[in-house]
């Protein structure tokens, strides 16, 4: 089971069992849905961006596997209270860790931020996912949805 333990680190299972920032935000929060058409996972991200460009609140809804749910949970903890620019740096850092670059995500703008030195903290636990290519989409679903939510909120 060593391969599995490398993938399913304790912290991943913890975030899966007790997801952080689960729920909804009322309007005028931005609500964005993301789908993984391969497995049917659905995610809903609610964000509030205040007048100072700070991502003041984030809530996550939807269903998914342990990888997608823990990734979303850790992401919400990592970006909450950060400025949009800081959040985007974390997104870039995470996508770089997943070895996925802008084009693959349909977001050419993130190409420039592909290899930043960002401290990802707990999120480093998801590094093992790279060895299971099929699961990368699980890990990145919430991040792509957040990118879209930020675009919508700051448009």
């Amino acid at each position: 089971m060593s391969g599995l333990e490398e993938l399913y680190k304790e912290i991943i299972i913890d975030h899966y069992r007790s997801p952080r920032n689960k729920g909804e935000l009322p309007p005028p929060a931005t609500r964005t849905e993301g789908f993984n058409p391969l497995c049917g996972d659905e995610i809903v991200i609610y964000i509030d961006v205040d007048s100072n460009g700070v991502l003041s609140d984030i809530k996550i809804g939807g269903q998914g596997c342990s990888i997608s749910q823990s990734s979303a949970s850790m992401m919400s903890a990592a970006v909450k209270g950060k400025t949009v620019a800081e959040a985007q740096e974390i997104i870039g850092g995470f996508k770089a860790m997943m070895s996925v670059h802008g084009d693959a995500l349909g977001d050419p703008a993130s190409e420039a931020t592909a290899e930043p030195e960002v401290d990802l903290g707990d999120l480093e636990a998801l590094k093992g996912v790279v060895k299971f290519p099929v699961r990368i989409k699980c890990a990145t679903l919430s991040w792509n949805t957040l990118t879209q939510a930020i675009d919508e909120a700051t448009a």
């Binding site: 596997c65 342990s66 749910q69 699961r135």
Partner: peptide, 22 residues
């Protein structure tokens, strides 16, 4: 409480091929 993707991942460790998803 175990998502189909996670089940299938463990099953693959046992060389058991099933399809997860919708």
């Amino acid at each position: 409480d175990v998502h189909a993707h996670d089940i299938s991942q463990v099953l693959d460790e046992h060389a058991v091929c099933v399809r997860p998803g919708h």
